[in-house]
Amino acid sequence: MRRKGDHFTGLTSPAAQMKCGVPFSCAADCTREGLLAAANSYLAAQTAGSTSALKLSTSNFTYQQNNKVSDITKGLLSIPYKIDLNRSTADTTACASYTMWISSTGSKPYVVGTQIRHLGNDTSTISMVDSIAATTGDLFFDSKKTLGYIQKEDWTTISPATARPSRELLKKVGDAYLDMWTDAKAADSIPWGTDCERVEGSMYTKPCGGQLPRGGSKKANGMRRYVIDEEAGSVDVLCQFDSLGTMPDSHEVRVVDGKVKYVHTITVGKVG
């Protein structure tokens, strides 16, 4: 019988074996439960300021902080932080999760967006921790204001399943948002909700559909990495904000009832 997390399974019938092509060679399933368990282990490690409890891949692991490959033992995870708020989403197709957390106390507050990735659909080990971490001095940074806005949001799972936005729509919306700086038509292609709220650092805008860029830059925002969660109606894109100056950036968008409900941005650096 299959055990969750196994790479190989003993299948009890020839018909079941044929579904795998080769007997005993089915890859593990990437489950929502496994992804969120790994995200929770990351949060526990951050609270402790130690990576010792993280099950990191011993053969193929990468730690990236603010778009630069780094030593995990010298990065943000080496320092304990009191986390005031956190929220995670899961992408079983890409076998990845996205976690946002806020620490608004202490001498160096942070707002962080982290994507965690797993190879071979195996959520029992982590192959990549990829963080965008904004702190004092970064664009529109004020962790207490950001915390106040995000605490009021409703991230209830979208139910029934038939009401959830498709993966294709979520990716399209995420890309269109980042394309607004280079494509004059991108803003009008996004299904803005009339009650949409946008939190850029600590700058709050409602509704989202006002005061939008409409082209002007020749540099597209690059290095895009996606976590798409249909149950939450969300897409997170970690990227490099090349349109305004090579800044490490996270853009998260939530779609409810076919319309954009929330936009969150975490940007490291300043414009210009």
Rank of each mutant, 00 (worst) to 15 (best):
K74A: 10
K171C: 02
E153T: 11
V111Y: 04
D91M: 00
S127A: 14
M128W: 02
T93P: 00
S131K: 03
S103K: 04
L147V: 07
G106S: 06
P160A: 05
D71W: 04
W155M: 10
A96Q: 12
G120I: 08
C95M: 04
K171M: 09
G120Y: 13
T123M: 01
A176W: 03
Q115N: 09
L139Q: 11
G137Q: 09
S124N: 13
K108V: 01
L147M: 08
D138Q: 13
L170N: 13
D71L: 05
G148Y: 06
I83P: 02
W101G: 01
Y81R: 07
G75Q: 02
C95R: 03
T135S: 14
V112F: 03
D91I: 00
T92D: 00
V111E: 06
K145D: 07
A96F: 07
T73N: 12
T114K: 08
T114R: 06
S107C: 00
G174L: 09
T92V: 06
F141P: 09
D91E: 00
K68A: 15
A134Y: 05
I102A: 10
I72W: 11
A133H: 09
V112W: 00
Q115P: 03
S107I: 04
V112E: 06
K74Q: 13
A163D: 14
A134V: 05
S103G: 10
Y98N: 12
T105R: 11
L170M: 13
G120K: 13
D142Q: 03
L170S: 13
R87N: 10
K108D: 01
V69H: 06
T92F: 00
S166H: 09
I150L: 15
I126K: 12
I79S: 02
S166N: 10
Q151I: 05
T156D: 13
K74D: 06
S97R: 06
I116C: 06
T125M: 10
K74V: 00
D142H: 04
K152P: 09
I150Y: 15
Y110H: 15
S124R: 11
Q115K: 11
I116A: 05
T92C: 00
T156P: 08
K145A: 11
K74R: 12
E153R: 12
L139C: 06
A133D: 09
L77E: 07
K171V: 10
P165S: 11
S78N: 00
P109V: 01
